[in-house]
Design a protein around this nucleic acid. Structure first.
Lengths: 183, 183
DNA sequence: CGCAGAACTGAAACTATTTTCAGGATACCG
DNA sequence: CGGTATCCTGAAAATAGTTTCAGTTCTGCG
């Protein structure tokens, strides 16, 4: 944590959004979490909107970075399962990341600009799923399958985050769906 | 619209939540939309929390009512498709209903009480899907299939509400998923 | 009618949160 | 060093939103 103020603040924003949601995003909370004064937030980001914007851009960017790492599984189908199942799990950081995405998606409903950013990231992720799916099953309709699987993951993610199912159940549902797509 | 104040207010809450989300839920907006004074909100519901609670209970209840109507399609598979696809569409009210549910689900992540209410409604809906699926395909694992289909619908609903896909695409994805489950 | 109780109003008081700002500390450079 | 640009602080002012309440209107009933 030898970052400078700006980075400390963005990291604090990510933690606050993951733990309290966008509804609980208070500048005073962010400042406290980052260990800086409120004034510094304004100094670096102008106002609340600028701060939120920067924080969400950062979330988007780091999600994109994460999506680029190749899962080192053997078959394309297994790599696909790994890509999709990485949204669930009890490892540290996973729930936080999923929670944040959930917030972003939900905020996008009422904000065209955020919707555009979410769309872009989602499209990237879905494209990767489509490529793996096409490798695994060159016969099937990879485009439709990728939409189905990624949307399914988003739905399951909501169920998991609200305690309706556990991570293992979500993962097995994803694997079952992949299996169902390849006869 | 010859309702009394209380009902007018709850109806206004539903419209406000559907059009601005929980984040945009202002008592002054609700009062304006309902055509009553702010004081009346307090008179009937105590405080903001009481109002929101009542509004969300109402949303839950009307969703449950809606889920009970039997789609009059011929085969079980078609009734299942009708049940699930009724979440999407350009008919009036559908988008509003989906938007509200989306908000509720997202709020449930940070609120155990709301999570419980959402869980109950979701479980009902999923149970109906499971019954239809079991009818349509007595061989398959209806429990897992129903989870998959309902979670898929929730995911697709988010995509639709954020403008990433249109209602027709969402519906065809649902039908394709149903088909994939029945070999 | 005249009264009592329920429904209702709107502005003032209060609370929560963001924005501004005058200035203090720190780092960098000639 | 001394100067200056950048980073940073925290409290005061401004803003947004909720809660309270004293009083008005309506409604049903004897």
């Amino acid at each position: 944590m030898a970052e400078d103020g700006r980075e400390r603040i963005l990291a604090a924003c990510a933690r606050i959004i993951a733990s309290s949601g966008l509804a609980g995003f208070r500048m005073s909370e962010v400042a406290r979490e980052a260990g800086v004064s409120i004034g510094l937030l304004a100094y670096h980001f102008g106002d609340r909107d600028g701060l939120l914007q920067a924080a969400l851009d950062e979330v988007n960017a780091s999600a994109a970075r994460r999506a680029e790492v190749q899962p080192d599984a053997r078959t394309p189908a297994e790599r696909l399962a790994a890509l999709l199942c990485s949204e669930f799990g009890e490892e540290p950081g996973i729930r936080e990341g999923s929670t944040t995405w959930n917030e972003l998606r939900s905020a996008a409903v009422f904000d065209a600009e955020r919707a555009a950013a979410v769309s872009r990231s989602t499209a990237d992720w879905q494209r990767r799923a489509r490529e793996l799916l096409a490798e695994a099953d060159p016969e099937g309709d990879a485009e439709a399958g990728a939409l189905m699987l990624t949307a399914l993951v988003e739905g399951l993610s909501g169920r998991w985050l609200t305690g309706q199912i556990d991570a293992a159940r979500a993962q097995s549902a994803v694997r079952a769906a992949i299996a169902a797509l390849m006869p």
